[in-house]
Design a binder for these strands. Sequence first.
RNA 1: UGACCCAUGGUGUAACGGUAGCACUACAGAUUUUGGUUCUGUCUGUCUAGGUUCGAAUCCUAGUGGGUCAACCA
Length: 556
Amino acid sequence: MAEERSLNFLEEIIEQHLKEGRYSQIITRFPPEPNGYLHIGHATSIYINFSLTQKYPGYTNLRFDDTNPETEETEYVESIKEDVRWLGFEWKYERYASDYFETLFEYALKLIDKGLAYVDDSTSEEIAAMKGTPTQPGVNSPYRDRSIEENRDLFLRMRNGEFPDGSKTLRAKIDMAHPNMIMRDPVLYRIKHVPHHRTGNKWCIYPLYDMAHGQCDSIERVTHSICTMEFVPHRELYDWLIEKLEIYPSKQYEFARRNLSYTVTSKRKLLQLVNEKHVSGWDDPRMPTISGMRRRGYTPESIRDFCARIGVGKRENLADMSLLEFCVREHLNKIALRRMVVTDPLKVVITNYDKEEEMVLSENNPEDPSSGMREVPFSSELYIEREDFMENPPKKFFRLAPGKMVRLKSAYIICCDEVIKDSRGNIIELRCHYIPESKSGSDTSGIHVKGTLHWVSCKHAVPVMIRWYDRLFVVENPAEEDDFIKYLNPESLKVIYPAYAEPSLKNATLNDKFQFLRKGYFVLDKESESDKLIFNLTVELKDKWDMIQKKQSDKH
RNA sequence: UGACCCAUGGUGUAACGGUAGCACUACAGAUUUUGGUUCUGUCUGUCUAGGUUCGAAUCCUAGUGGGUCAACCA
């Protein structure tokens, strides 16, 4: 049975175009400026552009919008490519706006020849002053009526480097009283004697966004140029330039940028987090960057699933971090290897266990029988989680308590007989006895217990470091606060060392995804060394007991 | 005091003039050798006012609310 999934507004437009025969294939592009690292907001844009051409005939280009040499670097180009690939998308052509500088220059000449562009000697302040305001029309520049010949001569000399930065610009001649301020003789070219990361010192004039983006789309025969809502006012200029230049009519469509709760995505704010060392870097596992999420242990599949689930629309939005976390858990549940790690150890001595040790078998992933089993060493001295024992347990506490029984996962049922305390009254050890016939897989004891605990054999335990991450901010929408830094979560990182891991974890690699039983999903961090493994918390497991506890304490 | 864009549960998105649906969240229950997973159920919504129509979330008008635009950034 074919499931009818409703189309988003972009898919509707495209299906209509395909049906009408307006296009036989569609071409989209992902057009980052190489001036920073990609984040979850870019991921949605990448997903939209690429998934459209996976669904419909056509392809997607990766185009670097590198028209401002002051901010752009090759380093960013490389990281952007790595991130797009990691997300699982393949572009057809890798292109750069700078590939088209010569063509763009000719386009500018064509505008001049048609009397549609002029060289302006005004300063940026003067241009701003003459622009008017949203409610008042602007006034014409005194240079607006230069002859075509003079404009041509001046523009050529701009390119030849005869004028200093800021002394002249090329402007479109449209209408200084236009209700759309973008259309009030927008600047098309500016002088910048700045080397470009790809063209070096070849150029000293560079096109602005409006003189480059739509033209590049057109050159690449992009059919659907998809961008965010803040470019809506630019569409009129986009169309105007294409029409006057008489080039291939690419069309622009806008969607509302997707925002994520409990984080920020503006480059300025992200940079501030890095510079002020609130995080360790651009790939800090708490960052919403692609590299941060990768290091956190998020999978490309889960990020793509998230993008698909939040969909695309035209209204302001703030998507729930819980949905992203849901997508991550859902994928990891299927693929993560189950392991046992005790983060806050309490020693348990099994008084009637007379063997030296034995290996018990435990599933690598109960969701995936093909993942097989592993051996876990069991012995008379074990660590369990301190919070899994209570001397005076409340109702609904299914874990260990004096005289109570629990199962040790994949091993035996034990019963707590005695609580050992130090001189200050702290619990330091539990004495228990085990039920020999209760061994997992061959249980003939007939005993049913409500709780199952994870555990690690003391003498086999591997001490590891755990970086327990939480949300970076304590408010849903930090971006709208006056000082977003004030709302950083002071507990966004807790370091736990040592935590005791079962021995198989010694062989962990950077690509492995783990579920530490009853704790959460974890991934090995790149800063690990062979004798000091570091695991990052990707996301916690859901914890109903946690909720019950909270509710009980709320009542009192 | 201009132009443009937008308005559906707590969140995100459907319904294309004809039963307001799905997912997440929250809550309740069943199952469970992970208080995980899985399964079942429950709560909550069309910004307001007019109009067109047999019938409006949908079309029209006005209002309200939110956003964008006055970079030689993209």
